[in-house]
Amino acid sequence: MPQRTWFITGISSGFGRRMAEMLLADGNRVVGTVRDLDSVRELRKAHGDRLSVHRLDLTDGAGAITAVVDAAFGAAGRIDVVVNNAGYGLFGAVEELTDEQIVHQIDTNLLGSIRVVRAAVPHLRAQGGGRILQLSTYGGQATNPGASVYSAGKWGIEGFMEATALDLAPFGIGVTIIEPGSAGTGFRTGGARVAEPLAAYDGTPAAMVRRIKDPSLPSVGDVDKMVAAMIATVDRPEAPRRLALGSDSYRFMNQALTARLAELENGKATALSTDRQAA
């Protein structure tokens, strides 16, 4: 694999941390963002000037995000791959969630990722191309009870990235949406946030997410294999639009897409009947 320079948001833990470690071990350069610089102290010590780190919270706003991205490109000269990884999960039925929780989730997972792309695209275009990897989840194509706002952010960013991929293709900028299933990244047990439960939802499907932090719940995916597959997409001549990772991701997405296509076909006659009649 050629040595490249990668910009990755959220390298303190999870997929972002493991991706940074694997890339650095292979001789790449990494520019990462974290909310707490102390969280990557040992990583910085181990890899010296091949790793540079910026403090950034995706809710800091467009100005802060643009300043970090501009500084990263300015220092590196060229960044080959931009990875939108930072984010977290918010779970609970919609009426269990506060307005502040909802705004923070959308500001982080959707608007934060959009702002990173907006800041990076002028640099990628000026340098003649590059890749953008957007971390999503199978929940960007399928839904689960108790994940309404989390799904809203993921469905939103997938729509944004799919359309943006069409805009950026003429400039040699490829876009890949990454859709992992469950994996032992600490996403559930560490970063996930669960709403204060309402008794009305006791015993309903939405209450399922109240166990999301239970460490005994199984994870299907192998983190290293998943990250290796993400990295490998950059070596493909054409960026795959989507990359499902894990048998659970494939299964949930296959079921959801098959059901949606069946519903579309069932409504075909109605759809065609609403066309204007030819003169």
Rank of each mutant, 00 (worst) to 15 (best):
E196L: 14
L97T: 02
D214V: 01
A67R: 12
V31S: 04
I102G: 01
I102T: 12
G191I: 01
G190P: 07
G153V: 08
V223P: 06
V194N: 04
P237N: 08
G159M: 08
L23A: 02
A192E: 10
N109P: 08
P145Y: 09
M226K: 01
S249L: 02
I79C: 01
T59Q: 14
A259G: 14
V220E: 13
S273N: 09
M1V: 13
A199Q: 13
R18L: 15
E100P: 02
L243E: 05
R115D: 03
A192G: 13
I106R: 05
A232L: 09
D107E: 15
R241I: 06
R35F: 07
Y250C: 08
P215K: 04
I231Q: 01
G130D: 02
S151M: 12
Q277M: 15
T137V: 10
I11S: 01
S136T: 08
F15S: 05
G267C: 09
E263V: 10
R211G: 13
A147S: 13
A279P: 15
V175L: 10
F91K: 01
L135N: 10
L24P: 05
D214F: 07
I79S: 01
L243A: 04
V81E: 09
I106L: 15
P170M: 12
E162K: 06
G61K: 10
I173R: 02
P240G: 09
A67G: 09
Q277I: 13
H104M: 14
L56N: 05
H54P: 03
Q255E: 15
N28A: 07
R236Q: 15
I157Y: 03
D107W: 04
A46P: 03
F160C: 03
R193S: 11
T9K: 03
G191P: 01
T185W: 01
P2Y: 00
M230S: 00
E263R: 14
R211E: 15
L24S: 07
A25T: 13
I212N: 11
R188V: 00
Y250F: 15
V31P: 00
V30F: 07
L90T: 04
A165C: 06
G181W: 02
M22T: 12
G184W: 06
M208I: 10
F252A: 12
K225W: 14
A244W: 10
S219P: 00
